[in-house]
Amino acid sequence: MILTDLQRDALAEMANISASGIASQLSLLLRDTITIRVPTARMVPLRWLREQIEPNSGGSDTGCVYQALSGSFDGRIYLLLHDEHSRSLLHALVGDVTTGTEYADLQAYEHEAMTEIGNIIISSFAAMMIELLNSELELSMPAYLEGSTRQLLFMSGAEPIDEDQPSVIVIDTELHATERQVSGSLLLILRLLPVTALLQRLDAMMAELS
């Protein structure tokens, strides 16, 4: 299954509208001028995602924030800061005292900050889904997780995994902190079961608009 051009544009536009709210919230919270590049959306297979993320993780696990989604759509939304630049961005935003430390307390401090940043981004996007797709959604509290891409995205283990089948919606963008002069990419990943429910809502929204 692939996204049509219209579905792809609609998802990117939803992310773009929520980005301005996210940028202003993060600017206040992080005391910096945060800008977010216009996002792009695509539907990809797990293999593609692994190839994007795992070579950048330096062999270690990837960290992510996720919130479980239920209501009109079931599944999970993840926020990944997946490469060296995005991890540097987090260090710069939270303060570099935790960089490279082995102290569990300080790493926990950084994970907590990442959880809140993930919560802001995920819930702003979810709010846009509620508004524009006229849907009923509930989110769990955000949680921070570390693991391989496969472990993170297919935790339930109940479903068969076809790594070559497009099954995950990826919205990617870049966040820039002006005063700190750092940028990093963000991946917002929608793992919906089934994804068709979202696509039908997107089609319905576009039909109403046209």
Partner: peptide, 25 residues
Amino acid sequence: SSRFWSALDQVLRYRLPQLLSQALN
């Protein structure tokens, strides 16, 4: 805290849960 008030707005308007960490607030 502007973060508190905007988080409260997200919960009351959209029912989306919010975490305000000590690390950032």
